[in-house]
């Protein structure tokens, strides 16, 4: 299920503007990789290029290779819709579909795959996914209520349940805790550690403690100045990044001497 991701010489553009330049990275299966760096350095852009969500924005494109277990995501004839079905994503702000019930939110992705499922199998899947997202006990009595009635942290866990219900190979998380309080954040971090057993997780975060707590490897993105493309400065095991980084820029950033 979990897959490794190899990125080589990836450049990402918005129209003529080069937002990210020359990324080379290898992400191990069943690991959590954190991407840190200042705002505007391209880490979210890079994350979105991993499931081709980047190109939803008009004029956006990439050059280079993203290979997941031997398959080039940007190869000729690869359908971005198929890519996104294999690589799930959780966004910065919780975004359950407001017109759907909790139940329907969880199975939204499965229904897209248009395989007819028995009601009982569907019920099992909902229970399994919600349990996987540590949300089952809180919502099992109100599965038919709208997802928008939940608290922010619950909504975000609902979004995680929705993403893992389709059994993706990789789970991308774009600052999943930045809109949540510390208790909900902790719940999501615990959940990530559990999900690591089954999925390859890549998370963008502004919270360096979070990166240090949950991730196995950390990538530091930076940019030289406004209008310059962002670059991957350093990619190493999290322990090394936070104790003995190779690059001066990384050390400056994580110790707060930035700029």
């Amino acid at each position: 299920m979990a897959k490794r991701i190899d990125v080589s010489d990836l450049d990402i553009y918005y129209g003529n503007f080069k937002a990210v330049e020359g990324v080379n990275i290898s992400i191990e299966p069943r690991s959590i990789t954190a991407l840190i760096g200042p705002s505007g350095c391209g880490k979210s852009t890079f994350l979105r290029s991993l499931n081709r969500m980047h190109e939803v924005i008009p004029g956006a494109r990439v050059e280079g290779k993203v290979v997941i277990d031997g398959q080039d995501l940007y190869g000729a004839g690869v359908d971005p819709v198929d890519v996104r079905r294999q690589i799930g994503m959780v966004f910065q702000r919780p975004n359950p579909f407001p017109t759907m019930s909790i139940y329907d939110n969880v199975v939204a992705g499965v229904r897209l795959n248009s395989t007819k499922m028995k009601k009982s199998a569907m019920d099992d899947l909902v229970e399994r996914s919600l349990k996987g997202a540590n949300l089952w006990n809180e919502v099992k009595d109100r599965l038919n209520r709208p997802g928008s009635g939940l608290s922010g942290g619950q909504q975000q866990r609902l979004c995680i349940a929705r993403a893992i219900a389709v059994e993706p190979e990789v789970l991308l998380m774009d600052e999943p805790c930045s809109a949540l309080d510390p208790i909900s954040t902790l719940a999501i971090e615990d959940l990530m550690t559990e999900l690591k057993e089954r999925f390859t997780i890549v998370i963008v975060t502004h919270n360096m403690q979070q990166a240090a707590r949950v991730s196995t490897s950390t990538g530091f993105f930076n940019l030289n100045g406004v209008g310059q493309p962002g670059r991957l400065i350093e990619f190493n095991p999290t322990e090394k990044i936070f104790s003995n980084p190779e690059e001066k820029a990384t050390e400056d950033y994580i110790s707060g001497r930035f700029g």
Partner: peptide
């Protein structure tokens, strides 16, 4: 909301499915 449109696309919805969801 772009938030919900992106949620649908990220689940692997085609454009028509995104519109439907």
């Amino acid at each position: 909301p772009a938030l919900h449109r992106e949620a649908a696309l990220a689940l692997g919805a085609t454009r028509w499915e995104m519109i439907k969801m």
